[in-house]
Every structure is written in C-alpha cells, then in structure tokens.
Design a protein around this nucleic acid. Structure first.
Lengths: 216, 216, 216, 216
DNA sequence: GGATAATCGAGACGGTACGTCTTGTCTTAAA
DNA sequence: TTTAAGACAAGACGTACCGTCTCGATTATCC
C-alpha cells in the first residue's frame, strides 16, 4: 500500500466521498488495524490452506473480527485478495531503473519476478490468476485493476531499457510484443509447471529480447 | 479417449478391478453411457458456470444419475475433469508431423494450441491449471499425468522440426529451453491476459525459436 | 398519558434524575416529539408485523431517529411497548361509573373490554401478555405495573356495581373471585380462541356474577 | 404421541404419501430417535430459556443433530413445538369420564388442567398461545390443530357430565357457552396473572356451571 | 458570552441466529 | 451387485438485528 489517501477510494465512496459534500458525515471512522488484520488473515490462510481453504468465516475468525465487519468492507474473498495484492505487489514488481548494462538489468528484473512468485504475495497473484481462469468477474477485476497497471509499469520499464540499449526510440507495438516474449516463458514456468524456471531460461529470454530489439 | 481398455485403469481399481481375481466379480458392468453422461455434464457445467459452479450434486443431477454413483467412480470433481481432459485433449494437441517448412509447421502448431484454448476442452485445461495454482493435489495429479505426457509429445514434436530445420541433432536441454520459449508467450497470453494472442506474437516466437536453434 | 409530569418517572431516572441533585444538569431536554414518534412506530410495527417484527432498529428507522436515541430512553422493545400501553390503555379500560342498572353496566364494561382487544392498543396488551408467557422479566414488569393498577381499578369498579346491586357491602375476597369469574371467559376467548366472544357469553357472565353476589 | 401411524401425516406427505403411489420411494427412513431428540431438546430449551431462547441452532446442538436435519422435517421452531404439544398434551387433558358426582368430576378436571399448566408440556402450550397473540400463522395452526381437537374433547366431556347431572339432553350452544364459563377463569389466571388459581375459584366455577345447566 | 453538559444522528463493531447450500458418507429398496 | 433415492453430520454462505461504542454537530443552561 503506497498511497494511503487513494486506498479503497471506490469502496469508501459510500458515506463520505463523491456526493457534493452535502452529506453531513459523522460517526466513527473505519479502523485501519482491522483492515490490516483481515488482509493478513486472508494471506495467511491462502498460504496455509489454498484458495478453497480461504473462507470469509475463517478470515473473520483469524482476524478476530465479526463476519459482518468483513462483509461491510469487502464483498467477497476475491475482493479481499485483490486488496492484499494491491498493497503488496506494486513495489515488489517495480522496475528499479538503474543504469546497469541492459542485459543485466533485464535478467535482474526477471529474477525479481521469479522470486516474487515464491513469496506469499506471489501466491496471492497465482491464486487470483487461477481463479480468473473460470470466474469472469475475477478475470475482469484483475485485468482492469492490477494487471493493467502492472502492464503499464512493465511497458515503461522495458522501453527504457531497450531505448538505452539500442540508442533509438522503440515503437509501442514492438515493446508490447517483446514484453510478452520476455515474460511469457517465466509466467509459463510459474503457472504451468510450478516452481522457478531454470536460470538458463531467464538468461536466454533476456538475451533474445535484446537481439530482437536490435534487429527490428 | 483412445485406448478404452486402459482407460481409467487406476481409477477403476476401487470396487472391481486390480485385486488379484480373488474378488468374485459378478453383477452388471460399469455403464459406459453413465461415464460419458457424467463427463459431459461436468464439461457443460464448467463452460456454463465456471469451476466453482461445478458441483458433484450438479453433475449427478444433470447426468440423471445418483450422487453416490458419481462418488463410486471418481473421488472429486477434479478427478472427473482430469478424466475429461484425458479423453479430449490428446489429439487436439498432437503434432501432426508433416513435411512442411519448419517455420510454417511451428506457426500452425501454435495456432492449433491457441484454438484449443478457445474450445470447451481448453476450458477444462485452464480450469485445472487454475485450480492447481493453490491446490497441491491437483497440481501433482496434473503434472504427473497430462502435463508430463503432453510435455513429452511436445519435446518430440519440436525436436523433429528443429532437426529437420538445422539438419543436425539437437541436445535435450536445448529443446527443453526452446520449448518454453516457444510456448511461454502463448500460455502467458491465454492464462494471464485471457483470449488469443495477436498473430504477430505467434509468428515472432516461431521465428525466434528457429533462429536460436540455428545459432546455438 | 394523563400526568405528563410524572410520566416515565422511573425510566427517566437514568441520566438525569434520582441522584441527589449533585449532578449539575445542563444541556437540551428530552424531545417529546421523539418519544411519541418512537411509541407510534412501535405500535405500527406491532400491528403490521407482529411482535417478532418489532425490532429496535425498525422502530428507530420508522421513527426517523438514531438507534442510540432509542436505547438512551428505553432498554428494550418490551419497555417501549409497556410505555405505549401505559399511555393508551388506562382510559380505554376505565369504569365510567354511571348509575345505570347493574346488569347493564356490567355488560357495557365487558363490551368495552372486548372492543379494546380489537384496537391497536389491545394488540399491545395481547402482545405483552403473550411475551410474558415465557419471559419472566416481562411477566414481572407487566404484573407490577399495568396489571396491578388495572386490577385495582377493576376491583373498585366491580365492588361499586355489586354494592349498588345488592344494597350491602361486599368483602374483598368475594370481589376478587367474582372479578375473575367476570373477566375470565372474556380473556379466555380473546387470548385462546382469538376474536371477540359471542354476545351470549358476555350477557351470561354478567348475569351470573350478579346472581352469585346476591346469593353469597 | 399416541398413534404413531398417524404422526406427522401431513409432513411426511412429501416423499411417500398422498400422491397415488406413482413415486417410487426408496432410500433410508426417517430416524425416530432423531425426532424424539429434537422434540425433547426443544422442550428443555423452552423451559430453561423461554420462547426466545429456543433457536433452531440451539435445538440442533442439544439434540446432537445437524441443523439441516431439523429443517428437513420442521419448517420453524413453532412447528417443532406444535409437534411436541401433540405428543404430550392429549392424554394430560383427557376427560377420564368416571361415574363420580358431577361436581366432583368437574373440580377434578379443572385441577387437572391447572396442574398441566405447571408442567413442561403446559409451558409449551402457554408459549404457543403467547406467540399466537401476534403471529397469525401460529394462531391458525394452533386453532386448526390442537385447539380444535381439544375443544371437541372438552365439549364431549362436559356434555356427558351435564347430562348425567341434569338427567336430560343439553343443547350444543349451551355446552359451548358453559365450557367457556368453566374454563375461562382458569385460563385467565394461568395466562394473565400467572401461577395457579386459588381453590375457591375452581370450586366456585364448577358449582356455577352446574347451577346454570340446571336452570337453563 | 463562554464553558459545560446534555441530546441527537450516523454508523462501526463483535456477536448470535437465521435459513440455504454443498460436501462426502451411509442406508435402504428396487432392478 | 449396481443403482436411484435420499437421510445425515458438518460447516460456509450472506443477511438481519442485537446491544455497545465512538464520533461530530447541536442546543441549552449556568457561571
């Protein structure tokens, strides 16, 4: 969670936001500690018991919170996990954007992603991607939220590396395709075969992407 | 379903088969029509209602069969879907192995896989891969069964193409890496972003794989 | 509600009264309009939805009042209904005490009570008597409050009629028994069989009570 | 429960009864021990905690039964209590019909009823009558079921006593009125003032009813 | 005219129970 | 012996109120 002011902007709209300030708005505020307890409980349960082992009742019990309190702020366990992801994944997947050699930077980024999939927050992403395979609502929420933002960050990061490497501008469709070439094998290993990819694969993809960028 | 005699050999072991003929073994045989009705019902429900909409009770009701009858032959809905996959996916993902130009053959194979993901049986695979993200048992069953076999078929198919293309033998680790490079972007599109990949992406990957094979 | 100054004397004791004047007591006074809105809302809900359909939240919502405001002044919905009863039932069940023929006066009083049970305030009494069957606290509150007062008014009213009829004093235990003989069949009809008693029954009881009073 | 064959005739209609035997009807039978455990649990809870303390969940827990099992056979706690009443109250309120002196027999019967109200099954009747004050469905079920049957038994019992006492036939409307005169004061004491009536009252009513029967 | 102290609306919160749904096992009767 | 039908224990679902509590905005009273 990086920008507290924006957090849950849509969810909080109910009592206070949006309406033109006519609404009086009194009463106690939402408890931040409860919010964190719920997100942590969900995360823990996911790691311990898998997606189907995460239940709203279980989350409430472990967070030491009433079930209705969970329902007041989130409408499903998917909603909770999306919130968890938003809090945790952003920085873990950021492009540091140093001035290293391009190939090294790509490899480092791939290793960072591979490492992310091993952590609890990576588990959350895997779980949500898994659920999205057959749940339309989850798929949409994920794409319009986390995935879109992440894609944008990745495109910007990759473009910067490529332009530094080739010394000239790179067109949008090119970066788009190259990003899929870069990330594809890694996600494929993580989602289909489970576990981290061999180092060969990461190095190979990083190199190929740079070659391709140079030749196109 | 290609080899009826072997079908479900392990699953059938329960009530009737397996034991060394000591079991008297009388009564009517397992009804093949029931088996198909169950598999179809599961498939239909998956497409209509998503993975969580598939329930054993729902399957039994739609197949016009008692719940216990389903439990007798399969131990979970995942087991049923694995059965469905085994019946449907093999040929859909086979390498035809013609004598076309290598690049064309790779592209055709990629398009075949992309098409598969749009069909009901592709839905089943996506559902199972999704569930495997957080369910250890499913992950194992999938990897030791369908995924291993499919990987072998893919390795053999790709090696044949590469050797025809380069005119020399290709080492095992090389094919392995190249297979991930080839399939990665496609699976990444299907599983992460949903929907088919752009044609550019498929063509690009096919070409790169051949380039890489030539240079290594 | 006949004596506003005394109204709810005990109930009001909470925040302000009772303590020996040490408490300085400033601030706004209790809103009478809120009190009435709450009592009316409770009454309406009781008639529309039955005892279980009366909830503090429902009352507050319908009265346009915050829940806490209700809890500030009443400690339960039973408490609210007792208040309603005190406001409404007294005069409806009073003995007018004219100088008519005794039999006519008894019949008129019985008909007045029978009519009362058909009205909303009669509903409140029935509801509270009903709840008192299995709720000890309600039973006690009802008996020590409304029922005792009403019993006293009834005893006085009946004694006056009997003494006028027989021309001599009537002993306490006799009036007590005769009051039960008089009211019993009426309440029995109202509470057990629902709906008003046949006119035969009222006339018969009135006559019998006078006969008995004459013979004893 | 006196006539097991008839028990729950309407409720059991679902799977087996009523329809013209077309329905095949297989599967396990309803467990009688569960039925009794549930009725006892409900009875116990009512006595211990009052009507509002009786919850389906509480009944299920105390009976050591799953909640759904309770819902399978009864649709509400009122339904359960009605069943309890049917099992328990019939014989407790029967007219023994000896050949004693009429007055003695009436007094005995009144004492029997008064005693019934002190027992657990009497508690059930009081609870249901209480709930019926504001719940239309309960009121109807009670009147069309238990109360009607009990009224018929009472009418027959009282008529026999009266005819033996007067030596001539008694008309229907007369018995009806006299029954209310007889039972009214007793129920009034039990339901309104709680606790048993004084012996005076019972003796007085019994005598009056016989006087009235003789004079009419 | 401030400070003080109450009322009041709004609603968060931990709970309990609701009535429904699905799971996986078990039991019975018919085929 | 297999199958259909379904009883059963277990437990999660999402909802409704409970009674307590914490805010912030408003009055009134008294110094």
């Amino acid at each position: 969670m990086t920008i507290p002011a924006d957090r849950n902007a849509d969810r909080n709209a109910g009592p206070a936001g949006g309406r033109t300030a006519v609404v009086s708005r009194t009463g106690p505020k939402r408890s931040e500690s409860i919010r964190l307890a719920v997100l942590n409980a969900a995360d823990d349960l996911l790691v311990e018991r898998g997606f189907n082992g995460v239940t709203i009742e279980g989350i409430a019990a472990r967070a030491g919170v009433a079930k209705q309190t969970v329902y007041r702020w989130w409408k499903s366990k998917v909603d909770i996990l999306l919130d968890t992801l938003a809090d945790d994944a952003r920085e873990a997947l950021a492009w540091p954007g140093g001035d290293a050699v391009a190939e090294e930077e790509l490899k480092a980024q791939l290793r960072r992603i591979a490492g992310f999939f091993e952590e609890p927050s990576g588990q959350v992403l895997r779980a949500l991607l898994g659920h999205a395979q057959t749940d339309q609502a989850t798929a949409e929420a994920l794409r319009e939220g986390f995935l879109r933002e992440q894609r944008e960050r990745d495109l910007a990061g990759l473009r910067a590396v490529l332009e530094r490497h080739t010394g000239r501008p790179v067109t949008e469709p090119t970066v788009d395709t190259l990003l899929s070439v870069l990330l594809g094998p890694l996600y494929y290993q993580a989602l289909v075969h489970g576990g981290p990819p061999g180092p060969d694969l990461l190095d190979a993809t990083a190199r190929h992407v740079l070659d391709l960028a140079a030749h196109v």
